[in-house]
Structure formats: C-alpha cells, structure tokens
Design a protein around this nucleic acid. Sequence first.
DNA 1: GCAGGACTTGCAGTCTCTGCAAAAACTGCA
DNA 2: TGCAGTTTTTGCAGAGACTGCAAGTCCTGC
Lengths: 198, 198
Amino acid sequence: MGGSEERLERRRVAKRTAIRAVAVRLALEHGPDAVTVEMISTAADISPRTFFNYFRAKDDAFSIEPHQWTREEILAELRARPADEPPAESMRVVVQAMAVAADFAHLAAEWELLQELYARHPELFSRMRFGEVDATIAALSAEIAARRGTDPARDLYPGMLVGASFAALQAAENQARHGERSLGELIDEAFDLLVQGL
Amino acid sequence: MGGSEERLERRRVAKRTAIRAVAVRLALEHGPDAVTVEMISTAADISPRTFFNYFRAKDDAFSIEPHQWTREEILAELRARPADEPPAESMRVVVQAMAVAADFAHLAAEWELLQELYARHPELFSRMRFGEVDATIAALSAEIAARRGTDPARDLYPGMLVGASFAALQAAENQARHGERSLGELIDEAFDLLVQGL
DNA sequence: GCAGGACTTGCAGTCTCTGCAAAAACTGCA
DNA sequence: TGCAGTTTTTGCAGAGACTGCAAGTCCTGC
C-alpha cells in the first residue's frame, strides 16, 4: 500500500520531467514566449488541460525548481539542531541539507539544455517563483531569533544570517554549475567566508 | 521645449501614481487576485486599455518598484570606489547609495497602504520583478572578481560578498519598515556583522 | 484657430489558467 | 478474468490578462 503510493509519485515525477523536457526543447527552438501551452501539450501527447495538472503555470515548465524541500522540512531541519549550537553552524548544516535535497542529479539529462535555455533567455530567472523562498527566510529568521531570545523585528542578526546563508547557497550553486568542485565543498567554503567575515 | 518634455514626464508619473493608489486601495479591500484590471480602470476613470499604457502588467500596479537605480548606475558606483579599498567596504558604500536612491520618501502618501498590502499579502513579493537584481548581482560580482584578479567562475568570494550585501539591504529594509532606526544605520550595522563574521 | 503630436480608447483576437463533470485508465482483489 | 474503487485525463465553457491596430480626442505651440 505504502509502496503503491510511492510508485504513483515516482510515475508522476517522471511524467513531469518528460513534459518539462519537451517544453525546454521547444523553448530553445522558438523562444519561451513563442511557445504556447498547446504546443507543449501536443508535443508531449497530452491535452492542454493535463499540462496544468502537472504545472501551475506555463513558466513552471521552464523552471529549475529548487524547491524539492518544503518550508516545513527545512524548518524542521533547523529545529533539529541543538539549541546551543552557534546559529551560523546550524545554518550551514541546514543549507547543506537543502543542497542534498535539491540534488540536481536526477535532472542530469535535462541539465545541459536548461542551462543553455537560461543562458539564452536570462529573463526566465525573473519569472521563477521565489515567493516561497522569502517566506522560508522569514520563518527561519524567526526561529533563530527565538533561539537568541530576541525580537526579530529589532534584531538584525537573524535576517542577516539567514539571508546570507541563502546567498551562500546561490553562490555555491553558480560555481557548481561552472566548476569542478562539489556543491557540498563549495557550501562549506562559502560558510567559512561568512563565519570569518567577508 | 526641454521643459515641456519634463512636464509631460511629470504628469505621466503623477498619473501612474494616481492609478497605483487606486489599485492598492482596491487590493486591500478585495485582495489582489479579486481585483481585475477593469475594476482598477473604472475606479481610476480610464479605459482598461489605458491601464496597460501605464503598467506592463496588472501586478506592476501593486509593485514597490525598488528599481530607482539602473544597473549601470549602481555598477558605476562600485567602479568609482578606489581599487585598493577592501571589497566589503566598497559594497557597503554601494548599498548605502542604493538605499538612498531607492528612497521611499516620494511614495510617502502611499507608503503606509503599500506596507499594509504587502503585510497582508506576502505572495506579492514573489510577483515582483527581481530579474534585474540577479543580473546586477552577476555584474557586480564580475567587477569585484576583476579587482581581485580572479576568475569569477572559480572564486567564491565575489558572488558571496555581493549576494550577502543584497541580503544585508533586504534585512535592513525589513527592520526599517517595522522599526525605529534609519535605513542607513541599519545597513551599517548589517555590514558590520558581515565584516566581523556571523 | 490651426497643424502636429501625444494620449486615450474601442475592438478584435490570442493566450493563460480554472472549475466542473464525464470518460478513460489503472489498481488491488476476489 | 472481471468487478469495484481510485486516479488520471480530457473537453468544455468561461474569466481575465494582455497586445496590435486604427480611429478618435486632447493639448501645445504658433
């Protein structure tokens, strides 16, 4: 029973991936704006209506989807850290966990094409949904503030730490894309910079 | 002649502001999604078509428009700093300049309502156009890398510094919204944290 | 008062996205 | 195999965002 659910989920993800692959290919060919949902659906052998069962919006089909993790999951990760650990160290662990969860490996096949697409159409970055990231930052900041016993509306530290942690993740991801070092290594290095001071 | 152009521009901005005021009021009343362009236009005494002469998209009428500065301007600000200044100090100055340029004073009348709107509908944050910010971060990072004589694709420091600087701006803005201290003070404090290490 | 330009508008049309209910496909199980 | 329950897919109808175009209106300087 549990296994069945899991299988369904896997199939769902696979189909999503397949649709995305088609969408990305078409976007590279014609430009993202010239691609309609209908074109994608036709090419992917589904009805347009079904497309929206898999993606909330057309742009989501071009999205990198860094959100493998839920806000709750990531918050739980932070809460699981000992309360007396230095907050920066807690965040290091949390970000490492996020990086693992967001593991791009399963996208390997598409990864190059996606990269190409974003290189050619940088405006797509701005269409990605970052809203949840903001809310996540706020939630994490609140948690850190609680641990410090300060008011998050007055204490600059929590927001600064969490914001910088996300910046670290992003910087590390950028390097990982180009470079040769692993994401984990890069995140560690980024946090070393943060902890030592920039 | 030149003056006429200027006047036209001022009138245009004024109308834009007026429309936005109406839009924000309606959004507070009914929620942003329940407000249609037609409602806004009717309330603002213009045709729906004219609305789109002033705003590229419906959401833009709810937007905070933090982009008073151009990417070129902000990049120029960084380039104006002495090359041997510690990069973190350069970025501190740049961010301070951005804060001044983004000065919300001219929005004073609307500011409270906008604040209220974003407090009640945080999802609006995610709809704002941040694309240019990403590009700006990349450009600033490249400049910093150039000054350090490193390859931006291998050196984590520039991306980390610039990303963290933007995080500092955002954290400071959040505090400034709630709090009693000035944005300038808060930015300084945020950078002190960054420089000392978190 | 008039010529030229800017602003506004209506219209027609494309496209995204949603709710709903019927049809189809798939599942475990007897 | 065949049935019953559950998902998944789909068509349909419709709201609403947005655009290009061309005609209309207003405004300005002369």
